[in-house]
Design a binder for these strands. Structure first.
Lengths: 183, 183, 183, 183
DNA sequence: AATGAATGAGCCTTCATTCAT
DNA sequence: TATGAATGAAGGCTCATTCAT
């Protein structure tokens, strides 16, 4: 909290706070609120992220970074089918973001910017690999394109977390992604 | 025409305008804008819907009303499986609301109020019937509950309309709902 | 002050307040301050003048309107020389605006907009007439162009009002404008 | 080089930068911007000039210092009339400050402080000498006081530099100062 | 002495809501 | 009942100033 002591730490705290607040209150949450949650002044938020959009982009990028990590790690899983569906489940269930993530995914302009674009490409590539392997293993329909997988993620991220019962939520998630399997 | 009917007409115009504006610009659209679109003053909007939330509720209720109508009509369809999936596709593809609808569905507080609750119950009942018949006909998994159907609707409404290519959108929709079918 | 009672009156009050406040505290004065002076809420200021620039333009336009009126009235004066110098003195001495007026005159972008442009043209024309007549009467150098007259006005408006002694201020003003006379 | 001279060099750089930035962007320019231009951190700016006002004063003082130098040098010119008018023209045309200079001159509080006061007195004295000599030589009206000369400088500094055409600007300047000459 | 991150007051602007007409 | 002007709380953002390093 002391000035200068660690700018990077503050940046991270703001990012964290933003993640939580956006998740809890939607993208409309005020910068003030985020600053409070991060334990810093508004000015600090704006110093690190000059615009609300920039903050949003950063949150989204951080989120996608994690996704990419997950996907890349799973690309080496011996069971390609399980790997893909694991990835999907983990992604949707991931604590925290939820709404903000999905919201951001669909907001025009966000996700197109220079901060997010590279990460997005990385995730896309990783998921494409996951998908390809799953298809070769016969665990996923042949006619599924990566873009569709992201639509599934988007939809599931939005809707499924609204279920509070753990078992039911898991079941619904599985069911929705079952649409990707061969019949 | 009597003042009574004048008022009724205005109410309808506002509701219509709200539907369009929310669909086009999101729930953040200003009341002013809705009034302009409806060709009335802001005051009139507030006379009919004392709060933005009330307006939202009314829009949602109207939307659900249509859904219920659809569902009830389809309940008499000779092919129960087709009936359910027709209903789902129609619901998601329905022009207009889309995002606003889904947004509203998940906003806490909305959909729980006295305006929406009854309609919601009606839709639920109608969809339950549709679902039950489809299950009896073997077109849908036995272990699906109505609640889950709504989660599917919610997710699909959010994500699928972001696809601009008509054929791809339809295919994705079908694929997602395929998760409801028996394997 | 009551809503609706007289929107036009409120607009005028805001304009008046803006004039005074800008004159007293410079163009940087806050809208809040202007609202307070006008006895209205900030929202009202923005309803009438959607932007600070718009308010500035309006103030400037109002000011120029008065100038144009003055100039046009004086164009019929039997003594062309006196007419021009009267106009100049009156313009500079005019209570109120002072700083804001001159500031606005030089701010790029302001004075070029659609609100100010027409009035500006009107003043220019009127002053051109005044100048022309004064030159024909031999009261002003032949080689003076209207543009230069405005530069004189601008400079004098800025500097002369800083003199508090009435007689000295008048004398200085006369002296400065003497530069326009034939030698 | 000793820390002493380091500090001195920095002070000068800041002053220089401030001069340029104020001239280019007006007194509203941010301290950050000035620091950047000077190639130092904001902290350094504030170490040397604890307040924006202090910085402004310093800039003004530096400017007046130059003026005083000019005036004192010209006091020995064999042609007293030419000397005064040369001084006036040079002062107004002086690249750099222009607007900021004039702004500062009229802002209450600035120019009255302990930093500026002494220099101001020095300029005043020097200009008084210049004026006196010019009057004795019959190049300037008898009834002109030093204060009025400064008002002329102020007004001309504000208005004349807005003219972009070199010849026209010079002519206008001459014309305005002609007001000081005997008729 | 220099640095620049942190701070928070303050600015412009938007918008739901009220209420005189 | 309809209207739209008025209101003021909030929101995003800027900037002078402080202070740990």
């Amino acid at each position: 909290m002391s000035p200068r002591s660690d700018a990077a730490r503050n940046r991270a705290r703001v990012l964290d706070a933003a993640q939580q607040v956006f998740a809890a209150d939607g993208l409309g949450a005020s910068t003030e609120q985020i600053a409070r949650r991060a334990g810093v002044g508004v000015g600090t938020v704006f110093r690190h992220f000059p615009t609300k959009e920039a903050l949003l982009s950063a949150v989204l990028a951080a989120r996608l970074e994690t996704l990419a990590d997950d996907a890349e790690r799973l690309a080496e899983d011996p069971d390609p089918g399980a790997a893909l569906f694991d990835f999907l489940a983990r992604t949707v269930q991931a604590s925290g973001l939820k709404i903000a993530y999905a919201d951001a995914l669909e907001r025009a302009g966000i996700g197109t910017d220079e901060v997010v674009a590279p990460v997005r490409e990385r995730v896309t590539k990783a998921v494409a690999t996951l998908l390809d392997r799953a298809q070769r293993a016969g665990a996923v329909r042949e006619d599924v394109a990566v873009g569709q997988v992201f639509v599934f993620i988007h939809g599931a991220s939005r809707a499924v977390p609204t279920i509070t019962d753990d078992a039911l939520r898991a079941a619904t998630l599985r069911m929705m992604f079952d649409g990707l399997r061969p019949r």
